[in-house]
């Protein structure tokens, strides 16, 4: 149990997301109440189609709820318009995705500073150097994504998420396309960012051993939070996940 979970970085209140209508309606989120602690590494797990990505998108301002509320800090995300959501993402969020994480026509360095550029902010060279150094990309900054391995590309994505020092980083299956040792590397960086840089991270994953890097795991099933676990280890998470199959 981590004692720093005192303050909340973001939370959802009775978050509901319905796709389609009538007979075809899919309740991707069916009344989710959840809070993510500041400076904490939280993991969202659950079967495929349980609403993990949907929850993440709605909390990060990538998508809007059908009903309910989402707060980032004191800001009610669910009340924002398109421009407000863009500003939220730009100024306060960082993202790591499973696929299509980098702009193929930009170099690694340009990808890393892209959010800063979009925000019209100048980069903090000390911080940039430290982040690039941490993820071990110093030698590769001029390369295009196509000239980097999958693991290196994902490191660039991690560096990009860290470079703008966002309030929160959302990661959707960041290790889904990587072999286990590269995945371990990425997860280590992410945990490092939380422990050393006090970063807040919310990560969606299917891998119980990836979840073990988090402080806390919440389990989602059919659009609802069904369980959570503090200081998880891989085997316990695996056991919990197995129950969904039944």
């Amino acid at each position: 149990m981590n004692a720093t979970a005192a303050t909340t970085a973001a939370r959802a209140v009775q978050a509901t997301k319905v796709y389609g209508s009538g007979d075809n309606a899919v309740h991707a989120l069916a009344g989710v109440d959840v809070a993510f602690g500041r400076g904490e590494f939280t993991c969202i797990m659950g079967p495929s189609g349980s609403g993990k990505s949907t929850l993440m998108h709605c909390m990060a301002g990538l998508d809007s709820l059908t009903s309910g509320q989402v707060f980032v800090g004191d800001l009610e995300v669910s009340s924002l318009d398109e421009q407000g959501l863009t500003n939220l993402r730009r100024d306060r969020m960082g993202f790591i995705f499973q696929a299509f994480n980098l702009v193929p026509t930009l170099s690694a360095e340009e990808n890393i500073v892209l959010p800063l550029r979009l925000a019209g902010r100048s980069r903090d060279d000390d911080w940039f150097g430290r982040v690039v150094d941490t993820v071990g990309l110093t030698e590769r900054l001029d390369h295009r994504p196509s000239e980097l391995s999958g693991g290196q590309q994902q490191r660039v994505a991690v560096a990009r998420a860290l470079a703008s020092q966002p309030e929160m980083i959302f990661a959707d299956e960041p290790t889904g396309n990587l072999d286990s040792s590269t995945g371990t590397e990425i997860l280590t960086f992410m945990r490092h960012a939380v422990d050393v840089f006090d970063q807040t991270i919310v990560m969606v994953t299917h891998d119980p051993y990836a979840a073990a890097y988090a402080h806390r795991v919440v389990f989602l099933s059919d659009g609802m939070i069904v369980d959570e676990m503090r200081d998880p280890d891989g085997d316990r998470v695996l056991d919990r996940m197995k129950q969904f199959g039944k």
Binding site: Q83, T86, R89, F95, F97, V103, L118
Partner: peptide
């Protein structure tokens, strides 16, 4: 589309 979505996620506005 992927690139567009990524840019939008990273804070590019519709105008961008």
């Amino acid at each position: 589309r992927g690139e567009i979505g990524l840019r939008r996620a990273l804070g590019a506005t519709q105008a961008h």
